[in-house]
């Protein structure tokens, strides 16, 4: 092989990343609540104490109907691909395109307790949908009183 061609081939892996990079990642956060544990939950019979014993500490807690509460457990076991394409078309000028297939809808379980702390109901699904009503609907006005 001629020397210039060899240099070109060896430098290719160094130069190419400035144009194209593919990434694959896995993210694992917490452990999901076991199906058997969920199957053992009985609305009306179980209370806060028995549920905490079965499921452990929740990831989040909200107020529910005055003196009731909602407890949420969330986990993540996802993989995603990402693609980065960049190009330097002039000195001090470059363009970059990045595409990420990450899914941020995390699965979880929410348990609702009434004012006497008995289990009212529970639901398994996407946290974004289940806790939608607990989101702040508007930004806090920090200029009040000024």
């Amino acid at each position: 092989m001629k020397w210039p061609r060899c240099v070109l081939l060896l430098s290719l892996p160094i130069l190419t990343p400035s144009c194209l990079q593919v990434g694959f990642g896995a993210s694992r956060n917490e452990e999901p609540v076991a199906e058997a544990t969920l199957a053992s939950l009985h609305a009306g019979d179980d209370d806060l104490a028995t549920c905490l014993k079965k499921l452990g500490a929740p990831n989040m807690v909200w107020e529910y109907r005055g003196n009731g509460m909602a407890l949420g457990w969330v986990s993540e076991d996802s993989t995603d691909w990402d693609l980065d394409v960049s190009f330097s078309f002039q000195r001090f000028a470059s363009a970059k395109f990045s595409l990420d297939w990450d899914d941020l809808d995390l699965p979880g379980v929410v348990l609702w307790f009434d004012a006497s702390l008995h289990l009212e109901r529970w639901q398994k699904g996407l946290m974004r949908e289940m806790v939608q009503s607990y989101r702040r609907t508007a930004d806090v006005d920090l200029d009040v009183g000024s």
Partner: peptide, 11 residues
């Protein structure tokens, strides 16, 4: 270089 892989675990 061209293909990168990452794994992240949080508990």
């Amino acid at each position: 270089i061209l293909f990168n892989m990452f794994g992240q675990d949080t508990r």
